[in-house]
Design a protein around this nucleic acid. Structure first.
Length: 469
RNA sequence: CGGGGAGUGGCGCAGUGGUAGCGCACCUGCUUUGGGGGCAGGCGGUCGGGGGUUCAAAUCCCCCCUCCCCGACCA
C-alpha cells in the first residue's frame, strides 16, 4: 500500500469501482454496449455465490431445471402489466435462418411466461402442488445506462418459480426464500447486512401482487437491491391457465411466487466491502481464502511454502500457493490485495530459521503478524472466522451511522443525500413521486420492529428512502 | 432519451497544419526479490469511421459511430 494503485473511494467512487473491476481482473466490457466478459476470478466468485445459494434453494425444496432462451413474443403479451413493464427493454429476434420470422421471438428478460406455460401442463391436481422450480440462466434487458455487474444488458441469475394451492402457502414460500435464502446468504456468506422489507406499489415488479426485497447499503451510502421475491397472486395462473382440482373437486387457479438474485451481487460485494486497496472478499465467499506467498525460493522456503499450502488445504481452507518468484514480491502482494484474498501468509528464508511465517489479514489495513508455524492451520481457520465477523460488523456500523431517522420530507431529502433516511410511511405516501424527482426512492417498507409488512396500507410502517443503483 | 466530457500502441495520456511521441504494460538479457525494484536493448499505432478544405490534416470544416460521467427506467 505504498503507492496508490487505485483511484481512492472518497475521491471518485464510480471511478474507484471501475478500477477495482479492472485491476482485480473481475470483468471486461464486452463489444456490444452493456455486455460484459466475466473473467476467471470474477466468475470464481460467482460460482461460490451459486454454490451457496443453490444449497439454500434446494434446502427450501426447489429443484433446478432449464427453460429456453427464446420466448414467443405472444407469451409476453398474455400478462398485460408484465409486458408493459418489460417492453422497453426487450431484445426481439425478427430474422433467423436467413428469413424474417412469422412470429418474432423475444430473448428472455425473465422467464415467467415460458415457465408458466409449462406449469399449465404440469399442474393438474392439488397433488402436483407445490411445484417448486429454479433455473440458473442468462437474461437480457436492453439497458440504457449499463454498469458492469450492477446493470448489464445481459446478466446471469437464478430465477425461482413456484405454484401453490393457496395464497397463504405462496406467501409463506415467498417470505421463506426472502429470509432463509437471500437474507441468510447476504448476512452469513457475503457479510452484508440487509434491510428486509416490502416494495411500495410504485416499485413493485410488473405483474406481481407484492414484491419483497433485500436492500444493502454500499460504500457511498447508496442503496442496492440485492434480491427480490415476489408474490404473483393468480395473475400468471389466470393468464396461462394454471389450474388444478382441489381435494374437494373444485377447479382452482394456482397461487405463485418468483424470486431471483443476479451477478449484480458481485457489484454488491465490491461496493459493500471494497477499500482503497481493492476488493475485500469475506472468507465464507472467497474462492481463495488464503494465499501462501513464497518470497524467495532459498534455503528450502519453496518446499516449506508448498507443504504449508497442502496442510491448509487438508484443514479445509481454500488455499492458493503463489510461488511465482520471478515476479517481484511487492507486485504479488498488491495483486492479492486487489483481489481481496482474506488472509496472506508470507514465507521466506528469514522465516525458516525462526520457525515462523508472516500472517497478513486483508480486512485491517497494514496489519501483519509474525506467528509460529506450529498450529497454523487452526490459527488461519480462526482468523478467517474473525475476518468474516469483522467485515459484517464494519458494514453494519457504516450503515447504522449513515442512517438517519427523519420526521419530515425535508429531513428525508437531506439525509438521503449521503445515506438512508428512515421515516414513517405516512409522511411519504403521497410524495413518493416528488422524491423520485430528486432521484430518491423508497427502498422498502418495514414494520416498526423490522418485520416485513403484510401490506403497504398498514399503519405504523417505516419507509427507508435513499438514492439507489 | 436529455445534459456534460472523451475517442491517438494493450492501458493512461501529450501533441493548434509540415517525418506520430511519452509513461506504464509487453518481449530479450543481466541484476534483483520481506510492499508495484534497477540497468540495457526491443516489439507495437492506416491517430473512432466517412467526406471536405489544403502543396500538406491527429490538428481546420461537415456528417456518422462509440465510450465514460450526471439525470429519467431497471436485478
Amino acid at each position: 500500500m505504498a503507492k496508490a494503485v487505485l483511484t481512492s473511494k472518497s475521491e471518485d467512487f464510480p471511478k474507484w469501482y471501475q478500477d477495482v473491476v479492472a485491476k482485480a481482473e473481475l470483468a471486461d466490457n464486452g463489444p456490444v454496449r452493456g455486455t460484459m466478459v466475466i473473467r476467471p476470478y470474477g466468475y470464481a466468485i460467482w460460482e461460490r455465490m451459486q454454490a451457496e445459494l443453490n444449497r439454500r434453494i434446494k434446502d427450501a425444496g426447489a429443484e433446478n431445471a432449464y427453460f429456453p432462451l427464446f420466448i414467443p413474443e405472444s407469451y409476453l403479451r398474455k400478462e398485460a402489466e408484465h409486458v408493459e413493464g418489460f417492453s422497453p427493454e426487450l431484445a426481439v429476434v425478427t430474422h433467423a435462418g436467413g428469413k424474417e420470422l412469422e412470429e418474432p421471438v423475444v430473448v428472455r428478460p425473465t422467464s415467467e411466461t415460458i415457465i408458466n406455460s409449462f406449469f399449465s401442463k404440469w399442474v393438474q391436481s392439488h397433488r402436483d402442488l407445490p411445484l417448486l422450480i429454479n433455473q440458473w440462466a442468462n437474461v437480457v434487458r436492453w439497458e440504457l445506462r449499463p454498469r458492469v455487474f450492477l446493470r448489464t444488458t445481459e446478466f446471469l441469475w437464478q430465477e425461482g418459480h413456484t405454484a401453490h394451492a393457496t395464497q397463504a402457502d405462496a406467501r409463506v414460500y415467498a417470505l421463506r426464500i426472502l429470509h432463509d435464502v437471500y437474507e441468510d446468504f447476504a448476512r452469513d456468506v457475503m457479510a452484508l447486512p440487509v434491510l428486509v422489507g416490502r416494495k411500495t406499489e410504485r416499485e413493485r415488479f410488473a405483474g406481481a401482487d407484492a414484491t419483497y426485497t433485500i436492500e444493502g447499503m454500499m460504500g457511498d451510502g447508496k442503496a442496492l437491491q440485492m434480491g427480490t421475491s415476489h408474490e404473483l397472486g393468480q395473475n400468471f395462473a389466470k393468464a396461462f391457465d394454471i389450474t388444478f382440482q382441489s381435494s374437494s373437486g373444485t377447479t382452482e387457479h394456482a397461487w405463485q411466487t418468483s424470486w431471483g438474485v443476479s451477478t449484480r451481487l458481485v457489484g454488491a460485494l465490491i461496493m459493500g466491502h471494497g477499500d482503497d486497496a481493492g476488493l475485500r472478499v469475506p472468507p465464507a465467499l472467497a474462492p481463495i481464502q488464503a494465499v501462501v506467498v513464497l518470497v524467495r525460493d532459498e534455503e528450502g522456503a519453496g518446499e516449506r511454502a508448498a507443504s504449508l499450502a497442502a496442510e491448509l488445504a487438508g484443514a479445509g481452507v481454500r488455499v492458493r500457493l503463489d510461488d511465482r518468484v520471478d515476479t517481484g514480491f511487492g507486485r504479488r502482494a498488491v495483486e492479492w490485495e486487489l483481489k481481496g484474498v482474506p488472509v496472506r501468509i508470507e514465507v521466506g528464508p528469514r522465516d525458516l530459521a525462526a520457525g515462523t511465517v508472516t500472517l497478513v489479514r486483508r480486512d485491517v489495513a497494514g496489519e501483519k503478524a509474525t506467528v509460529a508455524l506450529e498450529g497454523l492451520g487452526a490459527r488461519v481457520a480462526g482468523l478467517l472466522a474473525e475476518i468474516q465477523t469483522s467485515l459484517y460488523q464494519e458494514a453494519l456500523d457504516r450503515r447504522e451511522s449513515s442512517t438517519v431517522d427523519a420526521a419530515g420530507l425535508d429531513e428525508v431529502r437531506e439525509a438521503a443525500q449521503v445515506g438512508f433516511a428512515r421515516v414513517p410511511w405516512d409522511v411519504i405516501r403521497e410524495s413518493e413521486t416528488d422524491l423520485a424527482a430528486d432521484a430518491l426512492t423508497v427502498r422498502c417498507l418495514q414494520e416498526a420492529d423490522g418485520g416485513v409488512p403484510g401490506s403497504s396500507a398498514g399503519a405504523g410502517l417505516i419507509a427507508t428512502v435513499a438514492k439507489a443503483y
